[in-house]
Simulated scan of single mutants.
Amino acid sequence: MSSTSRSSASSASSPYDLAGLHVEEAGDSGPVLLCLHGIGSSSAAFAPQLATLSRYVRVVAWDAPGYAKSADPADPFTLDDFADTAAALIRQRGGRAHVLGVSWGGVIAVRLAARHPELVSSLIVADSSAGSGTDPAKAEAMRARAGELAEAGPRAFAERRGPRLVSEAAPDALVQRVTDTMARSLRLPGYRYATESMAATDLRIADLAAVRAPTLVLCGDQDRVTGIEASQMLTADLHSSVYVIVKDAGHLANQEQPDAFDAWVLAHLRISAGIAEAG
């Protein structure tokens, strides 16, 4: 089933006008699976999931506020603002959703589940961390990225960072696709808001322990960005979680090994939502 693109109607409960939010959608039935991309990407990162998982669920992937085809926020955005905008999108799509977040998207997803537990049926957190606020050096490096983007421009910035997001054995076509997606998705001030939201966040303080939704945590075994230990640390404080290593995958496991990744996600959904086998 092919994906469709549309803008969302506005919602008074959101800090962001949803009329300016671009989403890609696929699937006509089943529960909603909301997909939140990483800090250097867009809804394009979920092309494999839009194509495959849409046979079982309604897949909704956003361009975060200030990214790709979504409008810039009117005011500076915090992690709470990104989470509250995702909450408004879930309410618009029916009131509850399973939430899949990759990297920065996983940090948003955990904050969303902590702030709006009534909206989150389950979580899938992939190649993520507790935020850059867990370490002053990491926070400083994260904040510096916006200046690097302003100085280098999106294309040069993407060519510098894109190849590290996949394993060293990743095919050239995937490296190019990841790099092109980053170059097309990033701009200021949205990227600055995103990096600041990461730099200011340590989910260990309160968020992880507050999450009650069943959670699947995945990480590529060759993740060179957040790494296995950072993602595994999330499970220590989560109330109900399962941890999975995705073999032969870097930081973008959902793109590099989509068959294995989607199989784990579907198994999680079948347990938490009763998704049936395809006919």
Rank of each mutant, 00 (worst) to 15 (best):
G190E: 11
P163S: 10
H98Q: 08
P171I: 00
S121A: 15
E168Q: 01
S121Y: 11
T134S: 14
Q222G: 09
R143I: 02
R212H: 13
Y193F: 09
L218W: 06
D221W: 05
Q92G: 15
L208M: 04
R143A: 12
M198K: 08
A146D: 13
V110F: 01
R212P: 04
A170T: 01
R161K: 15
E168S: 08
G105Y: 03
P136N: 02
G106P: 07
R204M: 00
K138D: 11
L112K: 14
A113N: 12
V175I: 05
Y191Q: 10
F157V: 01
E159I: 04
H116A: 12
R145T: 09
D202W: 07
R212K: 15
H116E: 06
T181K: 11
R192W: 11
A213P: 00
T215Y: 08
V120L: 12
R91E: 15
R164F: 10
D202V: 06
Q222Y: 05
T201S: 09
A169S: 14
I124W: 08
D202M: 06
V102S: 15
A139E: 14
G220E: 08
V166S: 06
D221I: 03
E168H: 09
A156N: 09
G94H: 10
I124D: 05
I90L: 03
R204L: 00
T201P: 02
A109R: 08
L123I: 12
V110E: 14
L208F: 03
A169P: 09
A130F: 08
S122T: 09
V110C: 14
P214Y: 02
V125E: 08
P171V: 08
A144L: 13
L165V: 02
A158S: 09
E118V: 10
S132A: 15
R155A: 12
R160P: 02
V178R: 00
M198L: 15
R96P: 07
E168D: 12
G162R: 05
A206N: 12
R212G: 15
R93L: 04
L89V: 14
L208Q: 00
V178T: 13
S128I: 00
V99C: 10
L112E: 04
A150F: 08
S132T: 02
D221R: 14
Y193I: 01
T181C: 09
A210P: 03
G101L: 12
P163T: 00
V166F: 10
H98R: 09
D180Y: 01
